[in-house]
Amino acid sequence: MWRELISRLGVDWHLADPARQDGIAAAEEALGHPFPDDLKALLLESDGVHDGLGAGVVWDLKRIREDNAFLRTDASIGELYMPFDSLLFFGDNGGGDQFAFARTGTGSEIYVWDHEDDSRIWVAGGLDQYLERTAQADNPDWFRPR
């Protein structure tokens, strides 16, 4: 399903080999919560999606696990930013801003975190909408008002 959607979007994105179910389960256990179903399904088709410039449209499982653990536990991060426990980061725009699922509500809402001002802005109602909006964007900051 996800490979077909990305193919229909007509973008030059690079897909990886699938992640393993046991790897996803281990990451969920390490982070202490399940991943959204759509993210798991995409990872089982491709362990990461990168654009032609190398931005992580969807990170690989290893980066999802490591970056989320770091952002939630590093003391220096905790001094600079609001807590990240309510977010599950999974992608970036190549310029420092990162995309995350909200771990509240439906579990499919996606926000962008601005690393400069610590804002969290709603950008999509699901992974499919996020991919479509990212593919249609003419710049990596498509979520910012012009």
Rank of each mutant, 00 (worst) to 15 (best):
A55D: 07
A69I: 04
Q98T: 08
M82N: 14
L61C: 01
A69H: 14
E28R: 05
G91H: 08
E4S: 13
G91K: 06
R103H: 07
R63Y: 02
K40N: 01
R103Q: 14
D74V: 05
W59Q: 04
I6K: 01
L9Q: 05
P83R: 01
L80K: 14
L53F: 13
A26E: 14
E79I: 08
T73Y: 00
R65F: 07
V58P: 01
A19E: 12
S7M: 09
F90E: 03
P18C: 13
V11I: 11
P18D: 12
A19S: 15
L87C: 12
W13D: 06
L43G: 02
S76P: 00
S76N: 12
I64N: 06
H33K: 07
A100G: 10
R8I: 10
H14T: 14
F101K: 02
G32C: 13
D12K: 15
A25C: 12
E4L: 08
G32Y: 07
F90W: 05
I64R: 06
A102D: 08
D92F: 02
D97Y: 00
D37A: 13
R3V: 07
P18S: 11
L53S: 13
D74I: 09
F70Q: 09
I77L: 10
Q21A: 15
F99L: 06
L53V: 10
L5N: 02
L80C: 12
A69L: 15
A25P: 09
F90Y: 03
A30N: 13
R3Q: 12
A25I: 12
L71T: 00
L71E: 05
G96K: 04
L43R: 00
D17G: 15
D85G: 15
L42R: 01
I24R: 08
R72D: 11
D38Q: 01
L88W: 03
S86Q: 14
G23P: 03
G54T: 06
W59K: 06
H14Q: 14
F84D: 13
L88Y: 02
A75C: 03
F90V: 05
P83A: 08
A75R: 04
D67E: 13
L71C: 07
Q21M: 14
A69K: 11
L80Q: 11
G96A: 07
R20H: 14
G78L: 05
N68Y: 09
A19I: 06
G54H: 05
V11R: 15
